[in-house]
Computed example of a mutant assay.
Amino acid sequence: MTGPTIQIVQSNGHRFEIIRWSSDIPEALLLPGATGGIRGYGALGAELQSLGLGVAGMNPRGCGGSQASLENVTLRDLAGDVIEVLSVLCDAPALLIGHAGGNRVARMAASMRPDLITAVVLLAAGGMVPPDEEAQAALSQIMSGSVEKAERHKLYRTALFAPDSKIPDEYFEVPDRSAEFGRAFSAALAATPVGDWWAGGSCPILAIQGLQDRIAPPANGYLLKAKFPDRVQIVDLDGAGHALCTEKPREIAAFVAAFARRLRAGEQLSPR
């Protein structure tokens, strides 16, 4: 397979756009952050595929070619979408990989249907420890969809990237991000108690976090590990912020692929 292909999954009147980095039945499903835009994860998807992990990426409703109502949507609705896609795409329980907002959806899905999910990888595992106020203000402006070109570099640096990371030009123009979905997601999250999704069911969890992440501070991962020491592993990445999938795709892919190999082999996943 020379490059990603697009697949449309239709289920229960919904339509979901899937990017396939492998022609094989996917072992893993990648979920984007709170404004969607799975096309922004091409580097990570390609790295995972190069390491032998069959992976697909899913656009949430209202993003790219995915179509379903955003009116009064709940976090359970979004997790239910993931469950629908897993049921169609995969012929065995799968690994869920969620970035930022997507990791909350992944955790909710793992809580709802543990029979479909072998483990969860959390990339920027926020939710308990609040963001830095300056970074949150910058992110809110970004998510509003009204960022002027002259100020976007500063806002993205403040909210999403480590101080020394290069921000690729294409990061600003991911075509399937959706401010409308971002607003619906924020409302769904605000209406959902953290306790409904925080634990991620009872499956193994690998949390990979940027040490310079100001939106999902690393303290979130440490709290999760303290609460569930027998099933949570933590990887800290220096030189990475909230946009760690863009900053460190090769490093992330190596950790995820090794985690997946151990899951396949049925090894005891000793937390670190």
Rank of each mutant, 00 (worst) to 15 (best):
R177I: 12
R183K: 13
E170H: 11
D176Y: 00
L224C: 09
A216I: 08
K227D: 13
M143P: 00
S146H: 10
I215H: 04
A179K: 08
T246L: 07
Y222M: 11
S165Q: 03
A240H: 00
G221R: 02
V194W: 00
F161G: 07
R157Y: 13
K154C: 04
F181I: 02
E173I: 15
L244C: 01
G239R: 02
F161W: 14
W198P: 06
A254D: 14
I234K: 02
I208S: 03
D236C: 11
V232A: 08
E247Q: 06
Q212E: 15
R152H: 07
D230M: 09
E151V: 14
Q212M: 01
F185T: 04
F228G: 06
G241W: 01
G221H: 05
D169F: 04
L206C: 06
A138F: 08
K248D: 04
I215P: 00
F185Q: 00
S144V: 07
R214C: 06
D196A: 08
T158I: 09
L237C: 12
Y156F: 15
L244V: 07
C245K: 00
Q141R: 15
A138M: 01
N220R: 10
A137F: 02
A137V: 08
A184N: 13
H242W: 09
P163C: 05
T192R: 07
A179H: 09
S144F: 06
G239C: 11
F172A: 07
G241C: 12
R183E: 05
P249M: 06
I167R: 04
A135G: 08
A179Q: 02
H153P: 04
S202C: 04
P229L: 12
I208K: 01
L189M: 15
M143E: 07
S165N: 09
A162Q: 06
P249D: 10
S202I: 11
E148I: 08
Q233T: 07
S186R: 11
E180L: 13
A162R: 00
E251P: 09
A135P: 02
Q233R: 15
A150D: 15
G195Q: 10
L237Q: 11
D238G: 05
P217V: 01
G182F: 10
I205W: 03
K248P: 15
S202Q: 15
I252G: 07
G195V: 15
K166Y: 08
D164L: 14
P175W: 01
R214Y: 03
K154I: 12
L223K: 05
D213I: 07
A162T: 10
H153M: 13
